[in-house]
Simulated assay, not measured.
Amino acid sequence: MSLRNSRPFLAWRAFAAAWRWSPGSACQICATWQRDAVCGTCRQRFRHAGHRCRCCAVSLVGLNEVCGRCILRPPAFDHTLTAFDYAYPWDGLITRFKFSGACELAGPLADLMSDALWTAAEQTGFEPPDVLLPVPLSAARQRARGYNQAWELARRVGPALEVPVQARWVERVLDTPHQTGLPRAERLLNLRGAFAVTAAGRAGLTGRRVAILDDVMTTGATLDALAATVRRAGATAVQSWVLARTVSDDAAP
């Protein structure tokens, strides 16, 4: 009999599950040994709370609710919620998760995102969406990376916030070049015609309030293009949910 099938091991596992206990791990930021992947001290210390544009979530100074760019050129989405700024230490964790195959960070990052979105939703009082759509990757990009980071977050955040997740209602039909370092105008040009709604999506999006989830918002071009696509398919309102928002449009991941 293997250790994992032994009676003492099975009893220990049942006890741990019942009490939601885990043997602990080193905090991914400060390396303190504790229960969670990111300790409570680091969550509080690096939460980057502040006043943000209601529309695109960029940090604002003053009492304005919407930034100047969103006033001049309103995006196709109505509202953005973010967990934190794309800055230390979150930028390093997201880079590992997105580009270095560290898919094990999806759970801890999704937990942080869920907590932050719950708080933001309570503060703003807006209505929850009917459905959550992860930003799709092209088939070639997903094969190269091995997973879609937006889906890995969405499939955990959706259930935590009690919002159904649909990964097959939209697809990326153009394998656009990497957006890193490009200004917003070039990003928008790259993304023209990049997204399409599937047959299931056309049936499901009509009259729905939608949230689109991505890992990082830089200029908002990707979310803007996808939001416009789902609006043309009949969505009545579109929110953007992002793990992190860059401090400025030049701080591209």
Rank of each mutant, 00 (worst) to 15 (best):
227 A>F: 03
72 L>T: 13
183 P>W: 07
215 D>F: 08
105 L>S: 09
202 R>K: 13
134 P>V: 06
216 V>F: 04
197 V>R: 02
161 L>I: 14
226 L>Y: 06
41 T>K: 01
237 A>D: 11
14 A>R: 15
199 A>T: 14
24 G>V: 06
178 H>Q: 11
72 L>Y: 03
123 Q>S: 14
74 P>I: 01
219 T>D: 03
54 R>A: 09
230 V>L: 00
159 P>K: 11
253 P>K: 08
26 A>K: 15
180 T>H: 13
243 L>C: 13
115 D>H: 10
14 A>N: 09
60 L>T: 08
66 V>Y: 12
54 R>I: 00
163 V>R: 02
62 G>M: 08
89 P>E: 10
48 H>Y: 15
8 P>T: 12
181 G>A: 02
125 G>I: 07
131 V>N: 01
77 F>M: 04
80 T>D: 05
55 C>W: 04
129 P>D: 01
161 L>R: 15
209 R>K: 13
168 R>M: 05
145 R>V: 10
237 A>S: 14
116 A>W: 02
111 D>S: 03
22 S>R: 15
30 C>A: 12
125 G>D: 09
187 R>Y: 06
33 W>D: 10
110 A>K: 06
49 A>K: 10
249 D>H: 15
28 Q>I: 00
40 G>V: 08
98 K>T: 03
52 R>F: 08
101 G>Y: 06
57 A>R: 08
133 L>M: 07
165 V>N: 06
89 P>Q: 08
85 D>I: 01
31 A>D: 14
129 P>N: 02
8 P>H: 10
217 M>L: 14
104 E>C: 05
221 A>T: 13
95 T>C: 03
132 L>P: 07
33 W>N: 03
130 D>Q: 03
7 R>E: 12
120 A>M: 05
198 T>Q: 03
71 I>C: 12
186 E>M: 14
117 L>I: 15
184 R>A: 14
209 R>A: 10
163 V>D: 01
6 S>M: 02
82 T>W: 00
41 T>P: 00
8 P>A: 12
24 G>F: 08
214 D>A: 08
73 R>Q: 15
224 D>M: 01
1 M>Q: 08
180 T>S: 14
177 P>D: 12
67 C>Y: 11
88 Y>C: 00
95 T>Y: 04
49 A>Y: 11
115 D>V: 10
143 R>Y: 05
161 L>C: 14
47 R>G: 00
127 E>P: 06
8 P>N: 13
247 V>F: 01
226 L>C: 08
232 R>Q: 13
244 A>P: 10
211 A>C: 07
217 M>A: 15
88 Y>L: 01
9 F>K: 03
189 L>T: 15
226 L>S: 07
110 A>S: 14
151 W>V: 15
89 P>H: 06
110 A>Q: 07
43 R>K: 13
181 G>R: 05
179 Q>Y: 09
101 G>N: 04
13 R>A: 12
193 G>H: 04
109 L>S: 12
253 P>Y: 08
94 I>R: 05
216 V>S: 03
149 Q>R: 13
170 V>L: 04
171 E>Y: 00
19 W>D: 01
185 A>L: 12
177 P>N: 09
131 V>H: 02
53 C>Y: 11
148 N>D: 09
126 F>E: 13
245 R>T: 04
19 W>E: 05
174 L>G: 00
21 W>H: 13
181 G>T: 04
213 L>S: 05
